[in-house]
């Protein structure tokens, strides 16, 4: 067992433990903490898969942004501290059973596909000249420049003749702006209305 496998096993275990304890915990802030552990371990897995920019974005946007937002939500909506809303045990058992079945289906599917043959077929169909083991050699994880190129519509990593992502990138920028304004508006006006009604 080499270092890479050891680290992978460690973070895989942390990811699964975090995800499962998000489901099991009843206290919302405990859930948020488990979510932090889970998402941070996923970002470590991204680094192990030599996707360093995605891993960094995961840390910055997900763990440092989205989860903070969620905890804020918890604090603004909990009427008492250390809030708990319980689900009934019967529902829990039912959900666990369905979950195990789901997991079995997924694992069975993943293990019964011959990925190498599929990979060859994709390479044949797209007729793009790429190295057979994907973009990343194990020794390089520096994906910032190629990713930035892909976002402005250039694909030097695929010999320049593949599709770039300029239009989706622009759309998502506008989308973010719309969401920013919309979320601020949604969260703000309603509260002012309720404050007014209380004053009356």
């Amino acid at each position: 067992m080499n270092v890479e496998q050891l680290l992978f096993a460690l973070f895989a275990l942390l990811t699964c433990a975090g995800a499962i304890s998000v489901v099991i915990c009843q206290n919302v802030v405990r859930m948020a903490f488990s979510l932090i552990v889970c998402l941070a371990s996923v970002s470590a897995l991204f680094f192990l898969l030599s996707a360093d920019f995605v891993g960094a974005t995961q840390l910055m946007v997900y763990v440092g942004g989205t989860v903070v937002l969620l905890i804020f939500g918890v604090m603004l909506t909990s009427s008492s501290t250390l809030l708990q809303i319980r689900t009934s045990p019967a529902e829990g058992f039912l959900a666990a059973g369905i979950g195990v079945l789901f997991l079995a289906v997924f694992s069975f599917t993943a293990w019964s596909v011959d990925w190498d043959a599929n990979s060859d077929r994709i390479a044949r169909v797209t007729a793009v000249d790429v190295p057979p083991q994907g973009y990343n050699e194990a020794s390089s994880g520096n994906t910032v420049r190629p990713l930035a190129m892909a976002f402005v519509g250039l694909r030097p990593d695929k010999g320049g003749n593949a599709a770039g992502y300029l239009l989706p990138f622009e759309i998502i920028s506008v989308h973010l702006l719309v969401v920013l304004i919309g979320a601020a508006y949604l969260a703000r006006t309603k509260r002012r209305v309720s404050a007014d009604t209380q004053n009356k």
Binding site: A56, L59, N142, V144
Partner: peptide, 15 residues
């Protein structure tokens, strides 16, 4: 020493 150095640094700091 990574190509995402500063980005990752701020990501860590935001934790």
């Amino acid at each position: 020493s990574l190509d995402v150095g500063l980005f990752l640094l701020f990501g860590m700091l935001s934790l």
